[in-house]
Protein backbone atom coordinates (compact mmCIF):
# COMPACT_ATOMS: atom_id res chain seq x y z
CA UNK A 1 0.00 0.00 0.00
CA UNK A 2 2.75 2.44 1.02
CA UNK A 3 6.26 2.60 -0.29
CA UNK A 4 8.86 4.99 1.17
CA UNK A 5 12.06 5.17 -0.86
CA UNK A 6 15.13 6.86 0.60
CA UNK A 7 13.11 9.34 2.61
CA UNK A 8 15.21 11.93 4.45
CA UNK A 9 14.09 14.73 6.66
CA UNK A 10 16.55 17.47 7.48
CA UNK A 11 15.63 20.35 9.76
CA UNK A 12 17.54 23.43 8.69
CA UNK A 13 18.28 25.33 11.84
CA UNK A 14 20.26 28.57 11.74
CA UNK A 15 23.70 27.05 12.16
CA UNK A 16 23.27 23.33 12.27
CA UNK A 17 21.32 20.80 10.32
CA UNK A 18 19.36 18.17 12.18
CA UNK A 19 18.85 14.99 10.22
CA UNK A 20 15.72 13.53 11.75
CA UNK A 21 15.39 10.83 9.10
CA UNK A 22 18.22 9.50 7.02
CA UNK A 23 17.36 7.63 3.80
CA UNK A 24 14.57 5.57 5.23
CA UNK A 25 12.91 2.98 3.01
CA UNK A 26 9.84 1.13 4.19
CA UNK A 27 7.19 -0.97 2.52
CA UNK A 28 3.83 -1.31 4.24
CA UNK A 29 1.22 -3.78 3.06
CA UNK A 30 -2.49 -3.45 3.51
CA UNK A 31 -3.74 -4.98 6.77
CA UNK A 32 -0.34 -4.92 8.53
CA UNK A 33 0.01 -4.11 12.22
CA UNK A 34 3.36 -2.38 12.64
CA UNK A 35 5.08 -1.14 15.78
CA UNK A 36 7.71 1.55 15.42
CA UNK A 37 10.16 1.56 18.28
CA UNK A 38 13.36 3.35 19.17
CA UNK A 39 14.89 5.74 21.70
CA UNK A 40 13.64 9.24 22.22
CA UNK A 41 14.65 11.63 19.47
CA UNK A 42 15.37 8.83 17.03
CA UNK A 43 12.86 10.15 14.48
CA UNK A 44 9.76 8.04 15.11
CA UNK A 45 7.32 10.95 15.20
CA UNK A 46 8.98 12.49 12.18
CA UNK A 47 8.44 9.25 10.29
CA UNK A 48 4.79 9.14 11.38
CA UNK A 49 4.24 12.72 10.20
CA UNK A 50 5.69 11.93 6.81
CA UNK A 51 3.61 8.77 6.55
CA UNK A 52 0.50 10.81 7.40
CA UNK A 53 1.40 13.62 4.93
CA UNK A 54 1.44 16.05 7.83
CA UNK A 55 4.98 16.89 6.75
CA UNK A 56 6.96 16.63 3.56
CA UNK A 57 10.26 14.85 3.25
CA UNK A 58 13.41 16.77 2.30
CA UNK A 59 14.21 14.06 -0.24
CA UNK A 60 13.01 10.68 -1.31
CA UNK A 61 9.81 9.34 -2.79
CA UNK A 62 6.52 8.51 -1.04
CA UNK A 63 4.22 6.27 -3.03
CA UNK A 64 0.68 5.53 -1.97
CA UNK A 65 -0.91 2.74 -4.01
CA UNK A 66 1.78 3.38 -6.56
CA UNK A 67 1.13 7.14 -6.84
CA UNK A 68 3.73 9.69 -5.84
CA UNK A 69 1.86 11.86 -3.35
CA UNK A 70 4.60 14.37 -2.52
CA UNK A 71 3.74 16.52 -5.49
CA UNK A 72 0.00 16.59 -4.83
CA UNK A 73 -1.76 19.88 -4.18
CA UNK A 74 -2.84 20.83 -0.66
CA UNK A 75 -6.45 20.01 -1.46
CA UNK A 76 -5.61 16.48 -2.62
CA UNK A 77 -3.35 15.83 0.37
CA UNK A 78 -6.11 17.03 2.69
CA UNK A 79 -8.53 14.66 1.00
CA UNK A 80 -6.20 11.70 1.47
CA UNK A 81 -5.72 12.53 5.17
CA UNK A 82 -9.47 12.89 5.55
CA UNK A 83 -10.64 9.78 3.73
CA UNK A 84 -7.80 7.29 3.97
CA UNK A 85 -5.89 8.06 7.18
CA UNK A 86 -6.86 8.16 10.82
CA UNK A 87 -4.65 9.80 13.43
CA UNK A 88 -4.30 8.98 17.10
CA UNK A 89 -1.95 11.06 19.23
CA UNK A 90 -0.33 10.65 22.60
CA UNK A 91 -2.05 13.75 23.95
CA UNK A 92 -5.46 12.81 22.42
CA UNK A 93 -5.81 16.19 20.63
CA UNK A 94 -9.57 16.39 20.96
CA UNK A 95 -11.17 19.82 20.50
CA UNK A 96 -12.03 21.01 24.01
CA UNK A 97 -14.90 23.12 22.64
CA UNK A 98 -16.70 20.14 21.14
CA UNK A 99 -18.55 17.28 22.78
CA UNK A 100 -17.37 13.70 22.22
CA UNK A 101 -20.04 13.28 19.57
CA UNK A 102 -19.08 16.49 17.75
CA UNK A 103 -15.39 15.58 17.85
CA UNK A 104 -16.19 12.32 16.09
CA UNK A 105 -18.52 14.06 13.63
CA UNK A 106 -15.94 16.65 12.56
CA UNK A 107 -13.86 14.68 10.00
CA UNK A 108 -17.08 13.56 8.33
CA UNK A 109 -18.02 17.20 7.85
CA UNK A 110 -14.90 17.63 5.69
CA UNK A 111 -16.00 14.52 3.78
CA UNK A 112 -19.33 16.29 3.13
CA UNK A 113 -21.39 13.73 5.00
CA UNK A 114 -24.85 15.04 5.87
CA UNK A 115 -25.47 16.07 9.48
CA UNK A 116 -27.85 13.28 10.34
CA UNK A 117 -25.58 10.61 8.88
CA UNK A 118 -22.58 12.07 10.70
CA UNK A 119 -24.42 12.04 13.98
CA UNK A 120 -25.64 8.47 13.54
CA UNK A 121 -22.22 7.15 12.61
CA UNK A 122 -20.52 9.10 15.41
CA UNK A 123 -22.99 7.66 17.91
CA UNK A 124 -22.41 4.17 16.52
CA UNK A 125 -18.60 4.53 16.80
CA UNK A 126 -18.78 5.91 20.33
CA UNK A 127 -20.94 2.97 21.26
CA UNK A 128 -18.35 0.65 19.71
CA UNK A 129 -15.60 2.07 21.97
CA UNK A 130 -17.91 1.84 24.97
CA UNK A 131 -18.75 5.53 25.38
CA UNK A 132 -22.43 5.71 24.47
CA UNK A 133 -23.06 7.28 27.90
CA UNK A 134 -20.45 10.01 27.33
CA UNK A 135 -21.55 11.28 23.90
CA UNK A 136 -22.45 14.78 24.95
CA UNK A 137 -19.59 15.28 27.37
CA UNK A 138 -16.80 17.72 26.71
CA UNK A 139 -13.27 16.23 26.65
CA UNK A 140 -12.39 18.11 29.82
CA UNK A 141 -15.02 16.09 31.67
CA UNK A 142 -13.54 12.76 30.55
CA UNK A 143 -10.66 10.60 31.77
CA UNK A 144 -7.58 10.11 29.62
CA UNK A 145 -8.67 6.60 28.65
CA UNK A 146 -12.09 7.88 27.62
CA UNK A 147 -10.57 10.73 25.63
CA UNK A 148 -8.28 8.36 23.76
CA UNK A 149 -11.25 6.14 22.92
CA UNK A 150 -13.07 9.19 21.54
CA UNK A 151 -9.94 9.90 19.49
CA UNK A 152 -10.02 6.35 18.12
CA UNK A 153 -13.69 6.73 17.20
CA UNK A 154 -12.80 9.99 15.47
CA UNK A 155 -9.92 8.32 13.59
CA UNK A 156 -12.37 5.65 12.38
CA UNK A 157 -15.12 8.04 11.33
CA UNK A 158 -14.37 8.05 7.60
CA UNK A 159 -13.48 4.35 7.47
CA UNK A 160 -9.73 4.85 6.96
CA UNK A 161 -7.34 2.41 5.31
CA UNK A 162 -4.49 3.33 7.64
CA UNK A 163 -4.38 4.35 11.28
CA UNK A 164 -1.29 6.20 12.45
CA UNK A 165 -0.97 6.14 16.23
CA UNK A 166 1.94 7.98 17.86
CA UNK A 167 2.35 6.56 21.37
CA UNK A 168 -1.39 6.17 21.85
CA UNK A 169 -0.99 4.77 25.35
CA UNK A 170 1.85 7.07 26.40
CA UNK A 171 -0.34 9.22 28.64
CA UNK A 172 -2.45 6.38 29.99
CA UNK A 173 -2.18 4.04 32.99
CA UNK A 174 -1.41 0.43 32.01
CA UNK A 175 -4.94 -0.94 32.30
CA UNK A 176 -6.44 1.93 30.25
CA UNK A 177 -3.61 1.53 27.74
CA UNK A 178 -4.51 -2.14 27.38
CA UNK A 179 -8.12 -1.21 26.65
CA UNK A 180 -6.92 1.09 23.88
CA UNK A 181 -4.65 -1.62 22.47
CA UNK A 182 -7.50 -4.10 22.42
CA UNK A 183 -9.66 -1.71 20.45
CA UNK A 184 -6.84 -1.08 17.95
CA UNK A 185 -6.28 -4.79 17.51
CA UNK A 186 -9.99 -5.27 16.91
CA UNK A 187 -9.84 -2.53 14.27
CA UNK A 188 -6.84 -4.22 12.64
CA UNK A 189 -8.83 -7.45 12.43
CA UNK A 190 -11.35 -5.63 10.20
CA UNK A 191 -8.57 -5.07 7.67
CA UNK A 192 -7.40 -1.58 8.67
CA UNK A 193 -3.62 -1.13 8.52
CA UNK A 194 -2.13 0.13 11.76
CA UNK A 195 1.21 1.82 12.29
CA UNK A 196 1.89 2.55 15.93
CA UNK A 197 4.80 4.14 17.79
CA UNK A 198 5.38 2.62 21.18
CA UNK A 199 8.00 2.43 23.90
CA UNK A 200 6.30 -0.55 25.48
CA UNK A 201 7.96 -3.85 24.44
CA UNK A 202 4.86 -5.81 25.39
CA UNK A 203 2.83 -3.77 22.95
CA UNK A 204 5.53 -4.18 20.33
CA UNK A 205 5.39 -7.92 20.68
CA UNK A 206 1.73 -7.98 19.75
CA UNK A 207 2.39 -6.32 16.37
CA UNK A 208 3.02 -8.24 13.14
CA UNK A 209 6.21 -6.33 12.62
CA UNK A 210 8.55 -4.03 14.49
CA UNK A 211 10.50 -1.26 12.81
CA UNK A 212 13.38 -0.17 14.98
CA UNK A 213 14.61 3.35 14.46
CA UNK A 214 17.82 4.85 15.76
CA UNK A 215 19.34 8.24 14.84
CA UNK A 216 16.96 8.57 11.93
CA UNK A 217 17.90 5.23 10.43
CA UNK A 218 16.06 1.97 10.39
CA UNK A 219 18.32 -0.44 12.20
CA UNK A 220 16.03 -3.43 12.28
CA UNK A 221 13.06 -4.24 10.19
CA UNK A 222 12.50 -7.95 10.57
CA UNK A 223 9.50 -9.65 9.24
CA UNK A 224 9.71 -11.89 12.24
CA UNK A 225 8.98 -10.01 15.47
CA UNK A 226 10.17 -12.84 17.60
CA UNK A 227 13.70 -12.49 16.24
CA UNK A 228 14.25 -9.18 18.06
CA UNK A 229 13.12 -10.49 21.39
CA UNK A 230 15.01 -13.71 21.01
CA UNK A 231 18.33 -11.90 21.40
Amino acid sequence: MINLENISKVYDLDETKVTALDKVSIHIDRGEYIAIMGPSGSGKSTLMHILGILDTASSGVYKLEGYDITTLADKEQARIRNKHFGFIFQSFNLFPELSALENVMLPMQYASVAVKKRRDRAAFLLDEVGLSHRMNHLPTMMSGGEQQRVAIARALSNEPDLILADEPTGNLPTDKGDEVMQILEKVNKTGVTIVMVTHNPNQGKRANRIINVRDGKIVENPKDVGAIYAK
Binding site: G52, L54, A78, R79, R81, F87, F95, P107
Partner: peptide
Amino acid sequence: ILMALGAT
Protein backbone atom coordinates in the same frame (compact mmCIF):
# COMPACT_ATOMS: atom_id res chain seq x y z
CA ILE B 1 -5.46 18.94 14.16
CA LEU B 2 -8.07 20.26 11.74
CA MET B 3 -5.65 19.77 8.86
CA ALA B 4 -4.77 16.27 10.06
CA LEU B 5 -8.48 15.49 10.04
CA GLY B 6 -8.88 16.69 6.47
CA ALA B 7 -9.22 20.50 6.44
CA THR B 8 -7.65 22.20 3.43
